[in-house]
Amino acid sequence: MEKDKAVRRGIGRFSLVICLLFALLIIALAVNLAVGSVRLSPNELLDLLKNGRNASTESLIVFNIRMPRMLLAAILGGALAVSGFLLQSFFRNPIAGPFVLGISSGAKMIVGITMIFLAGSISLSPAVLVCAAFVGSLLITAVVLLFSQKVRNMELLLVVGIMVGYICSAVTDMAVTFASEQDIVNLKYWSMGTFSGKGWESVVTAALISAPALIAAWLLSKPMGAYALGEGYAKSMGVAVKPFRLALILLSSLLSACVTALAGPISFVGIAVPHITRTMLKSSKPALVIPAAFLAGAVFCLFCDLIARTVFSPTELNIGTVTSIFGAPVVILMMVNRRRRAGQ
């Protein structure tokens, strides 16, 4: 029957995209493990993986350096993409994202302040940093929401977000001025954004925070679909709008805070990846977009990280530099296309 064909086509497309993303993910993971200053052949890599850890340098590199780094890039890339998608659902606008709305910079500010002023008194475990970043994210989200009640135009809200981001960066810089040499080194390194130098502890923290948040986000896909039609329609279908909006903003902030705390601010992934995902799926259905965006974000960040650490090796690029180069043009194209369509 005609409708079954249509249903199959939708599901078929989703399966196809998921398979493609999985294939890319596996390639990305393998390449990330093998490539670097010490290059491993596929056979050497397979041997190492089969035999588990041993005392060799190669084993150390693969298990203690590349593997946590790669897993972190995958988890955080996926988390960032989903965080962006949640914000876009919240504002019903595809150009919202944690970076452009200044939310990442807010997280960075609080993490920076924590690093400088609390470094002596408490241990800066990844979990503590995530908490600090979460506080910063929520703070700036609250500011942006306050403005969003006055400013109905999304483009204008973006300008507000970017300005708020600058203010946060200025405060961070000010804090740096008063920091000790040692703190500055740490902070500089972190604040530019990188997946390097992170151990398994960061990976576990990222996984423990992202996994429940992602599942919770996916469970919100039904009201998210209804909310795409606006508050009034969502309410009329039985969505409890206020708790739903709160859940959306908390989850989005938590995911982006996790990323900022563990890897520093990473730009444009939150907008570009969901956009690419929607385009590939030809659908905005949250139940399909969320898992696909997670995979796409993971793949995107793995490849960006690969580029960051290999292109000018041994010098490493910031991860943000690479994601900007690939992400920002996507965002520009999107805005231009939207304008053109709106003008019709």
Binding site: L219, K222, A228, S284
Partner: peptide, 30 residues
């Protein structure tokens, strides 16, 4: 309800959009 606010959901087919109306009848993931 049919409201005055104009909706512009992106990348929604007519069938998907009408399907949203099944909201009160579908399970937790819709």
């Amino acid at each position: 309800v049919v409201l005055t606010e104009r909706i512009r959901p992106e990348l929604y087919t007519v069938r998907d959009l009408v399907g949203l109306g099944r909201y009160p009848y579908t399970n937790i993931v819709g």
